[in-house]
């Protein structure tokens, strides 16, 4: 059954879309990641214009991050103050990112930049994940415990002004740091249509030194607001948010996520990370191939607005 996407202006099989949503939801439930980094490339592979894929993936992420964040809020694993500071940075980042996105679109380079960003970020992240999980698996076989990290590392980071006490995370650090992380992730969110959890979570653990149990819930709070802001700016500036597309994806992903959580329960952390690493590298390679391989057609058309 075909469904017409009014903003993407194309007809697509509704079961394919639903299946993509469910598949990505399954992954996000299983691995505990947002899944935006798979959603945007999948939509591009399915023929959705990259700019619309980004806007609609961001919109779909609003729903999934709100629902996951509420679960964390109930468990008390959200640092609201930290989340608010990161959100302020994220909102600024998404505004700047959306402006850049508009410029790139007019220059005809937005598809290239989307693909390049994915190749660079996913390639790097996937490789790191693969190495890490391989190391852990090898160490586990030798029966050695991983070396413990120091809880607090003092450095240039602690000399920054505007220090705030984050009670819930038991931190006294400059607000510029979480705001800066939020800004960077906001930029990524608006250009790639991802939540940015895959960058933000390590940054919060290693750069901010936040307690691990607070990290996911707090990052989800930021993601919920930032993806909402990305949705707003993209809908306003480039009209690339397809509500029909994102609502079908979202229905699939909600169901997929529940199944994914169940599937992931029995699996070891390093195996999950290894699998995720393989997936991330595969997506990056798929997009890289699209850039490197000689295109089937050198020419492309864009119908401009107006007369």
């Amino acid at each position: 059954m075909q469904i017409y996407l009014p903003i993407a202006e194309l007809s697509i099989n509704i079961f394919l879309l639903f299946g993509m949503g469910a598949g990505v939801g399954f992954l996000s439930g299983m691995f505990g990641v947002g899944g935006g980094f798979v959603m945007t490339p999948l939509l591009i592979f399915a023929g959705v214009p990259p700019a619309v894929a980004v806007g609609s993936a961001a919109h779909q992420l609003v729903a999934s991050s709100v629902s996951a964040m509420l679960a964390h809020l109930r468990r008390g694993s959200v640092d609201l103050l930290m989340g608010a500071v990161m959100t302020v940075g994220g909102l600024a980042g998404s505004a700047i990112g959306s402006w850049i996105f508009g410029l790139l679109r007019r220059a005809g380079q937005v598809d290239l930049v989307i693909s390049l960003s994915f190749v660079v970020f996913l390639g790097a992240m996937g490789t790191i994940m693969l190495f890490e999980s391989a190391q852990v698996m090898l160490r586990g076989r030798d029966g050695m415990a991983p070396p413990r990290r120091k809880l607090h590392q003092h450095g240039w980071v602690h000399g920054l002004p505007f220090k705030i006490r984050f009670r819930k995370s038991r931190l006294y650090i400059s607000a510029l740091l979480p705001a800066g992380i939020g800004l960077g992730v906001g930029l990524l969110a608006s250009i790639m249509g991802v939540g940015g959890g895959f960058i933000m979570v390590p940054a919060m653990i290693y750069l901010l030194g936040m307690p691990t149990q607070m990290v996911i819930g707090t990052s989800l709070l930021q993601i919920a607001f930032v993806t909402a802001s990305v949705t707003f700016f993209h809908a306003l500036n480039t009209q690339t948010v397809d509500v029909v597309l994102s609502m079908v994806l979202l229905t699939g992903s909600v169901i997929g996520a529940q199944l994914g959580v169940r599937a992931g329960v029995g699996m070891k952390g390093e195996h999950l990370r290894g699998l995720l690493g393989v997936l991330v590298v595969a997506v990056a390679l798929g997009l890289a191939w699209g850039l490197v391989a000689a295109p089937a057609d050198l020419f492309s058309l864009t119908t401009e607005a107006g007369t």
């Binding site: 919109h59 709100v66 707003f232 948010v241 509500v243």
Partner: peptide, 15 residues
């Protein structure tokens, strides 16, 4: 944009 965000938040809440 506003309607889209409200829809998504409501859907997330419902889920």
């Amino acid at each position: 944009a506003t309607v889209a965000i409200i829809l998504a938040v409501a859907a997330g809440w419902l889920a």
